[in-house]
Amino acid sequence: MAAEQVESWGVPWEQAFGYVQAVRHGDTIHVAGQFSHDGEGLVAPAPVDEHGRVTDFGTMEEQMRTTYANTAKLLARFGATMEDVVEEVVHVLDMDSAFAAAGPVRRTAFATGTPQVATTILVTPRLAQPGQLVEISCTARLSA
């Protein structure tokens, strides 16, 4: 089945890696891992040491907030909202800072006290951009 619609940001890393940001098949939208960027680079990068390791996770909340905002903008291109998200996977570098930020940020992003989203959160040793703390992929279903 061919994709009915694909969307990208037009950022250099899409061409370099070779992918699109989201694909719609029927009533389902698959959104690739989103992160905190403004189209030019990372927003609120965490400080890193000379080896590229993060030294402070204090920007987790801002990165997470921007990541969800980017996801919402991308979903809007398909006529969808965060309310249409049925599943998400959250990749983080540090679980403690993610848990501290996730509750308030997710309640705002999904506009509800208890987001009705099947969620998995995983710790990973590294993400694509230096200073990147979080990446979120999701699946949304459009209502008929």
Rank of each mutant, 00 (worst) to 15 (best):
G33L: 12
A69S: 09
A144L: 06
F17A: 15
G39F: 09
T119A: 13
T55H: 01
M1H: 15
G33I: 09
E4I: 06
R65W: 03
T119P: 06
E61M: 05
P104M: 11
R65Y: 01
E83A: 15
V54L: 06
S143N: 07
E88V: 13
Q15N: 06
A22G: 06
G33Y: 13
S36T: 03
A111Q: 00
D56A: 11
E135P: 01
K73Q: 08
H51S: 14
L74G: 11
G103N: 09
V85R: 02
T114K: 15
Y68D: 00
C138F: 14
P115W: 12
T66G: 08
H91Q: 07
I29M: 13
S137W: 14
E83D: 15
Q63N: 03
A76T: 08
G39Q: 04
G18V: 00
F17P: 08
T139R: 00
L74K: 10
V117H: 09
A69R: 06
T66W: 14
H30C: 09
Q15L: 04
D27Y: 07
R126W: 01
D49H: 01
V86S: 12
V43F: 06
H51G: 11
R53T: 14
Q5R: 04
G41E: 04
T55A: 05
E50D: 15
G52P: 11
Q21M: 10
D49W: 00
I136D: 00
P45I: 07
Q34V: 13
E40L: 13
A128S: 10
S143I: 14
G39D: 00
R77I: 04
P47I: 06
D94M: 15
I136P: 11
Q63M: 01
V54Q: 08
A46L: 01
P130L: 00
A76G: 10
V6I: 15
E40Q: 11
A16W: 01
V54N: 06
P130E: 02
T59R: 13
L127A: 08
H91K: 04
A72N: 07
E4M: 07
V85C: 12
W9D: 00
M64A: 09
V117W: 10
T120E: 03
M64P: 01
R53A: 14
T120M: 12
Q129R: 02
T71N: 07
M95W: 11
G18R: 14
V117P: 01
D27S: 12
G41V: 06
Q15W: 02
E4W: 07
E62S: 08
A3F: 02
E87S: 13
V134S: 11
L93C: 07
T139E: 05
I136V: 13
E83T: 14
P47E: 08
V89T: 15
V11C: 13
Q132M: 06
R53V: 05
V11S: 10
D56T: 06
T108C: 09
L127T: 04
V31L: 13
G33N: 03
G41H: 11
R77F: 02
A118Y: 03
V54I: 10
A3I: 02
G39S: 01
V85E: 13
